[in-house]
Design a protein around this nucleic acid. Sequence first.
DNA 1: AAATTAACTTGCTTTTAACAAGTAAAACTC
DNA 2: GAGTTTTACTTGTTAAAAGCAAGTTAATTT
Lengths: 137, 137
Amino acid sequence: MVDKKTKVWSGCPVRFGMSQFGDKWSFLILRDLMFKGRKYYYEFMEAGEGISTNVLASRLLDLENNEIISKTRDPLKGSRFIYSLTQKGTELLPMMLAMMDWAEKYDDVTEVPQEFITKLRSEPEKLQQEILENLPS
Amino acid sequence: MVDKKTKVWSGCPVRFGMSQFGDKWSFLILRDLMFKGRKYYYEFMEAGEGISTNVLASRLLDLENNEIISKTRDPLKGSRFIYSLTQKGTELLPMMLAMMDWAEKYDDVTEVPQEFITKLRSEPEKLQQEILENLPS
DNA sequence: AAATTAACTTGCTTTTAACAAGTAAAACTC
DNA sequence: GAGTTTTACTTGTTAAAAGCAAGTTAATTT
């Protein structure tokens, strides 16, 4: 769990965010869902970040319990599940984009394509719309 | 350290963000600096979140090493230090605001004042400017 | 029916966080 | 100016979480 222990964990929006997706792996899973087109367990595993399988399982379950992602059996192949963002999950996109904007500025080896970052800074609404339209629903 | 181990930790902006401030406590410290006017070690300790003193020390040092915050001796009282946001740190404000916007929507016990959230949604630029102007520099 | 794919779970080790106590430097207090 | 207080930590120990390796289960393909 991202945060299981703290007794009263309500009130502050930042605290709420942290309780819902506030760790490294959750952010990386969200990134995979939003920008990388990944949707299967094994794809998250193979993303190359080095997440442990038990931790991945735990994070996916947390995110699902928090209704940020949902899990459905793949109709084309019943041995696997499709993970996808809920509405609540897609609405984290602005936060992720703000973070990427910042990171691109301060990380000199960032791999964000220039056209992406240009669009992010000139027509953020449009970029966001395009990303949303390209998400599997 | 937020992330000390991963060998190659470059390229992706989300990964970069996580390596710089990617844990619960870092976010809460940033919140304190941005919105709560806290600047002393003991203020972070007393913020009521339950951070351990060794973890706080560690996070402050990480954030300082990452040049997101800076630390100076208080000229008025040399036994304490003033922690403040750098330019790099203040530029995380849009991300934090995006997160708060989201949280306010999904956390039904959020404590964000209505006027704050209204302004955030109607004149975000102006709100941001006001917050920046009120930060100690 | 046997082998493979996909998604986990379980058990163990290592790392990190939480908790409690102690130290050190500056600064007030008498 | 000596002793107490304030502030910011550090150190040591325990508890929790992450990382690692191997095993299990259900669906699917061969």
